[in-house]
């Protein structure tokens, strides 16, 4: 049953991510990315990461993708784009990683030994919820990266306003 869910979600994720790159119209690409985000959130739920799944839907599908769609509609694009001339580089790099994936699959097929037994489940992790567990780790061990993340968001906000505003410095002089 878990495998069935995984193969459904993985199939849709791979299909929609290929569609994001292959479709001509940017709006269709963004909507295809939306479907991919929802299925990635479903994958997180099957991995017992419910908080991350909710954040994925709220932030990625709710905020980031809406921002993309706003810009696509703001720019009013005429579609004329062909593919870029860097195709050989892309094919080379893609083939390299695809070969690694194929090797991983073949290696898994050949020796039936599982690579490493997962460590025993911490009993405390199941006793409290996923969100509580993340919150405890986030505000104790990772409190400094958390503050740095808030600083990154502040800098991004100021930078976006300065870059997108047309006459920021011309009003003074």
């Amino acid at each position: 049953m878990a495998q069935l869910f995984f193969f459904y979600l993985a199939g849709i994720i791979v299909l929609t991510s290929i569609l994001v790159v292959a479709l001509r119209n940017p709006v269709y690409s963004a909507l295809s990315l939306l479907i991919m985000f929802f299925h990635v959130a479903g994958l997180y739920v099957t991995l017992h990461a419910e908080f991350v799944a909710a954040v994925q839907i709220i932030v990625y599908a709710g905020a980031i993708l809406v921002l993309y769609l706003f810009v696509v509609m703001l720019l009013n694009l005429h579609r004329e784009d062909r593919y870029h001339a860097q195709f050989p580089v892309a094919a080379l790099l893609g083939m390299t990683i695809l070969t690694e994936v194929a090797l991983l699959l073949l290696q898994r097929r050949s020796d039936a030994v599982t690579p490493a037994a997962p460590p025993a489940a911490a009993p405390a992790a199941t006793a409290i919820g996923n969100t509580e567990a993340i919150g405890e780790v986030l505000y104790s061990t990772y409190v400094f990266p958390f503050e740095v993340a808030s600083l990154i968001l502040l800098v991004a906000m100021i930078g976006a306003i300065i870059l997108a505003k047309r006459d920021l410095f011309e009003q003074k002089g």
Binding site: V14, V21, P26, S29, R82, Q86, G94
Partner: peptide
């Protein structure tokens, strides 16, 4: 994960539309 990453990387390299390139970075 590797398949999705390849798709995003190929998208960054072969598309000419900057918005699609940013979407591929999201991938």
């Amino acid at each position: 994960s590797a398949l999705v990453f390849i798709t995003g990387m190929v998208g960054v390299l072969i598309r000419r539309n900057i918005i699609i390139i940013l979407l591929s970075v999201e991938l």
